[in-house]
């Protein structure tokens, strides 16, 4: 199990970031590349709404700043229409738990100062916020706000204290290296989210959710913001390129068909054990019962 490791041959400080001689990447024209581009187009479609909105947002901001330079230098300050709209949504829906100035309310909700837009995007876009009731963990549910409203909310919270921002769709797309993504997924994500993102149990009723319904930007912002008990994977720990690789792996494997028949949840021995008893052994017991019965 020991192998020569690139990190050993060179002095550690000489090692350039992302040098991976032990991993050859698939080149264009391979099935992997084809799969990537296929994924890419799906990913594009999926984040099309967000993308359009972001573009519109940038455009509006640019127009606004040229037309009314006296009021605001950049998007996302008081006076910006998105900011104001975001503030209004915040004051209608979030204020009771997170406080009038995002400072949080003891025992109800944490401070949102400095959490960044990525966290807001993840929490609201997956329907976790607004919370229905306090519990061990917020569950994902149908999203409450429109994409436009989410954007406004993101702008508002981002403007108050900064923090990890929502990346552009280019950054968050899923066109990364599939094999690298798989390795990184197994090292960093599989311990909680299971081998291929089926999710798993954590201590005392908490759980790592399934990644079945997660879109690219949600996975990206989750890694960036570390919602609830999930550790944070900042850009210096997992570069945007590596995050894209992970997203590509998750989305590719999620959508690929199972070559060996019904996937039975891809959860391994527990499901297989149930099948052998409830299907295999039961069918045979029925069979011998029939054989032993009088004609």
């Amino acid at each position: 199990m020991s192998t020569t490791n690139p990190q050993s041959d060179a002095q550690p400080d000489d090692v350039p970031r992302r040098a991976r001689s032990r991993r050859t990447r698939p080149t264009e024209g391979t099935p992997a590349a084809a799969a990537r581009s296929r994924r890419l187009s799906k990913a594009r479609r999926r984040v099309a709404n967000v993308a359009g909105l972001m573009a519109a947002l940038v455009l509006t901001g640019a127009l606004y700043s040229t037309l009314a330079p006296a009021h605001a230098d950049e998007v996302g300050a008081a006076g910006d229409p998105d900011y104001d709209a975001g503030q209004e949504i915040y004051e209608n829906s979030c204020i009771s738990c997170h406080g009038s100035n995002l400072e949080g309310v003891d025992g109800r909700g944490p401070s949102l100062i400095g959490v960044g837009g990525a966290a807001v995007y993840f929490q609201v876009h997956t329907g976790r916020m607004p919370l229905v009731r306090q519990g061990e963990q917020a569950a994902d549910k149908p999203v409450v706000f429109s994409d436009e409203e989410i954007d406004q909310l993101v702008t508002y919270v981002q403007a108050n204290g900064g923090g990890p921002a929502v990346p552009s769709d280019e950054v968050a797309s899923s066109d990364g290296d599939l094999a690298l993504g798989g390795e990184l997924f197994r090292l960093n994500c599989a311990s909680c989210h299971n081998f291929v993102g089926e999710g798993g149990a954590l201590s005392s009723g908490k759980y790592a959710p399934s990644l079945h319904n997660a879109d690219d930007l949600e996975i990206y912002t989750a890694m960036l913001s570390g919602p609830e008990n999930m550790p944070v994977f900042g850009d210096n720990q997992l570069s945007p390129e590596e995050k894209r690789a992970i997203i590509n792996y998750i989305q590719t494997v999620k959508e690929m068909p199972d070559p060996g028949g019904a996937g039975i949840g891809r959860t391994g021995p527990v499901a297989e054990g149930l099948v052998i008893w409830l299907v295999g052994m039961s069918a045979l017991m029925f069979g011998i019962f029939w054989m032993g019965s009088k004609a």
Binding site: N5, P6, Q7, P12, D13, V15, R17, R18, A19, R20, G226, P231, V232, F233, G234, N236, Q237
Partner: peptide
């Protein structure tokens, strides 16, 4: 991947 780590590389809660 063989890269060294500086104290500033990780964010709190990672």
């Amino acid at each position: 991947d063989g890269t060294p780590i500086r104290p500033g590389d990780q964010v709190a809660g990672s």
